[in-house]
Design a binder for these strands. Structure first.
Length: 113
DNA sequence: AAAATGACTCTTT
DNA sequence: GAAAGAGCCATTT
């Protein structure tokens, strides 16, 4: 089929990307987390940064703390704000000596659709 | 219309 | 094991 190249991404409007990201994040159950790259992959894109951008702009109304980086670390500059959320949801954490002071055990709570 | 920005990821040194 | 650089995507100015 000649549309093989177009099948790479859905024919959704650009602004729909934001709703798509928020929908995926909203689907993440409590106590579980997903990486930016995973969320982007679920949407059929590899823009992990684009997902982070959406969170920075519109994530204020979504469980952004359930979206973490591939290294298991919370969003830059928001570690202190996300930590109480993980503690309240029972997300497995590990103490670290970094600035964040903790790391998320993605291997134990990585959410997959 | 083009360039710059950003809550990222991966590979290599 | 840690650090650096390049790559990729969508939004904003």
């Amino acid at each position: 089929m000649p549309q093989a190249a177009a099948a790479r991404r859905a024919p959704e409007p650009p602004a729909g990307f934001v709703e798509a990201v928020l929908a995926v994040v909203d689907d993440i159950p409590p106590g579980c987390v997903a990486t930016y790259g995973d969320v982007a992959a679920i949407l059929g894109s590899r823009g992990a940064r684009a997902v982070g951008q959406v969170m920075a702009r519109y994530g204020s109304d979504a469980p952004w703390w359930r979206v973490v980086r591939a290294g298991g670390r919370p969003p830059s500059g928001h570690a202190a704000s996300a930590r109480p959320h993980y503690d309240a949801e029972g997300t497995p954490l590990v103490a670290t000596t970094d600035e964040d002071g903790y790391r998320i055990v993605i291997a134990a709570c990585r959410w997959r659709p």
